[in-house]
């Protein structure tokens, strides 16, 4: 069976500069896949291209076997890909509830209320502050809302860009335990992280990006054991 998401030889360029140069990987349904690498490796650009914010200059992206690399961002969302972008990018002057409603913008079914309750269940703090403007939340709460908002579209593939960025270790642990909760529920996750330890601990498989290319792939556990990965990304000598 074909993978849920297939990325083949993806190239992305900003003007003269190639940010992503021939990246290929698969995400199977129900899997958690992590992309790790340092600043400027092309992780975020890859995600932005998958969700249609950026145009690929070459290669293919398929969802369920259909090409999606020429679609507009909103059409890709409609096909079940949600993207919680880097820096959360909430709507700061709208309430938590309104942010969640916008996450369900594409949906026409009657179960939106139930999903709002599900998100509140996952992150009780959001329920307490539902009428508060998103811009007034703390960093951790904003990240929770960003994940919750992305979940509201009932995605088949949830892409998270640096969910741990700027968070205290404690809050980060909360976020990752929620992610592993999502994993046990069978949510397909594509995770971009600089925090390799946490990401690879969660992931079924992982890919290491360097200057726009995948230099190493393996299962999460394998990569965690890999000498090079430990040196470069886990700060070990």
């Amino acid at each position: 069976m074909a993978a849920l998401l297939e990325v083949r030889d993806l190239h992305v360029a900003y003007g003269q500069i190639d940010a992503v140069r021939g990246v290929s990987f698969d995400v199977d349904a129900g899997q958690v896949v992590a992309l790790i690498g340092s600043n400027g490796a092309g992780k975020t650009t890859t995600l932005r291209t998958l969700s249609g914010l950026q145009r690929a200059s070459g290669g293919e992206v398929r969802l369920d076997g259909d090409r999606i690399d020429r679609l507009a961002a909103h059409e890709i969302v409609a096909r079940g890909v949600a993207h919680a972008p880097e820096g959360r990018r909430l709507f700061p002057r709208m309430t938590i509830r309104e942010n969640l409603d916008l996450g369900a913008y594409r949906r026409r079914d009657s179960e939106v209320e139930a999903d709002v309750a599900m998100v509140y269940d996952l992150f009780p703090i959001l329920a307490e502050r539902r009428a508060q403007a998103a811009g007034t939340l703390s960093g951790g709460e904003q990240q929770m809302l960003a994940i919750g908002r992305a979940l509201m579209s009932r995605p088949r593939l949830l892409m998270l860009d640096e969910p741990s960025m700027g968070l205290s270790p404690l809050v980060m642990r909360t976020i990752f335990s929620t992610l592993s909760e999502l994993k046990t529920r069978g949510t397909t996750l594509l995770l971009v992280e600089q925090n390799a330890q946490a990401a690879l601990g969660l992931a079924d498989s992982g890919h290491v990006l360097e200057t726009g290319r995948i230099v190493l792939s393996g299962t999460g556990a394998d990569l965690l054991r890999d000498e090079g990965v430990r040196k470069a990304y886990l700060g070990e000598d």
Partner: peptide, 14 residues
């Protein structure tokens, strides 16, 4: 420019 070229992982600005 959308994002900073080549530094996609590094920009904080929307």
């Amino acid at each position: 420019p959308e994002g900073v070229p080549g530094l996609a992982g590094a920009t904080g600005a929307p």
